[in-house]
């Protein structure tokens, strides 16, 4: 799904240079559920932002779904983002002035999808996160967990290949966090690749693979993808047992 090799990201301000990522290499296979952990300031968000084409990198290589994204213009990056990637943010980032229906509609409109098709997708996505009955509500009328579900619906409506989540449960209590995690797992089971940054070791343990980042580098021996199919099979056998 994505391959980064010797990636480097330097933030330059007028006085200091911060190496947010240095010699960062990682492969994520299609269908994986990767949890990214690491101390604060280690570069997790930076990695995720570069994954999602929100930021550019200073050196190295990055291939997203077979496309070398280096040197792509802003519009091309926006389009790739819109078509291939779904984002889930720690603080939900719903648009407060739009009701749930219109919130989920936002990325679909940028893809210029016809109205009927958009409506179908929105209703389906909201139904999938269990909020079909609240389409006309505004974000402020929902609990945090519900807001994050809307954000997930918004990410799902565009049927992305890759779902990026930066501490999606960071602002939720453990019960709501578990609900969101279960939803993400279900989405992953249906084939969407997920890369999730989290501070919660319990949640990280539930992913297929953990990537540990320290000081802008992947430190874990576990950074090569394992066979996804076998994990799925494992899940299935556990369910049967």
């Amino acid at each position: 799904m994505l391959t980064m090799t010797h990636l480097q990201k330097v933030y330059r301000t007028h006085l200091i240079e911060t190496y947010a990522l240095r010699d960062f290499s990682i492969r994520v296979e299609e269908g994986e559920f990767v949890a990214v952990t690491g101390p604060s300031g280690s570069g997790k968000t930076t990695f995720l932002n570069i994954c999602g084409l929100l930021e550019e990198f200073t050196a190295g290589q990055y291939q997203l779904d077979g496309v070398d994204v280096r040197g792509l213009g802003d519009s091309a990056r926006s389009r790739l983002r819109n078509e291939k990637i779904g984002f889930i943010f720690q603080s939900f980032n719903l648009i407060p002035d739009l009701n749930l229906f219109d919130n989920v509609d936002v990325p679909l409109r940028y893809r210029r999808i016809a109205a009927g098709e958009r409506k179908r997708r929105i209703e389906e996505a909201l139904a999938r996160v269990g909020l079909a009955s609240r389409m006309k509500h505004y974000p402020s009328e929902l609990s945090g967990g519900q807001q994050q579900r809307v954000a997930i619906a918004r990410a799902l409506a565009g049927s992305p290949r890759l779902l990026l989540a930066d501490e999606p449960t960071g602002n939720l209590d453990s019960l709501m966090a578990r609900g969101v995690m279960e939803l993400l797992e279900e989405i992953n089971r249906q084939g969407t690749t997920i890369v999730m940054v989290t501070h919660d070791p319990e949640l990280a343990a539930r992913a297929h693979r953990n990537v540990h980042v320290i000081d802008g580098q992947v430190t874990d021996f576990d950074s090569e993808p394992m066979l996804v199919r076998s994990v799925r099979d494992g899940d299935a056998s556990r369910a049967m047992a």
């Binding site: 929100l54 926006s78 983002r81 819109n82 984002f87 648009i95 940028y110 565009g158």
Partner: peptide, 16 residues
Amino acid sequence: TRQIGTRRALGATRWD
């Protein structure tokens, strides 16, 4: 500003 950043993340171009 935050909303604009979100829209950009969700695929809006500068032109949008």
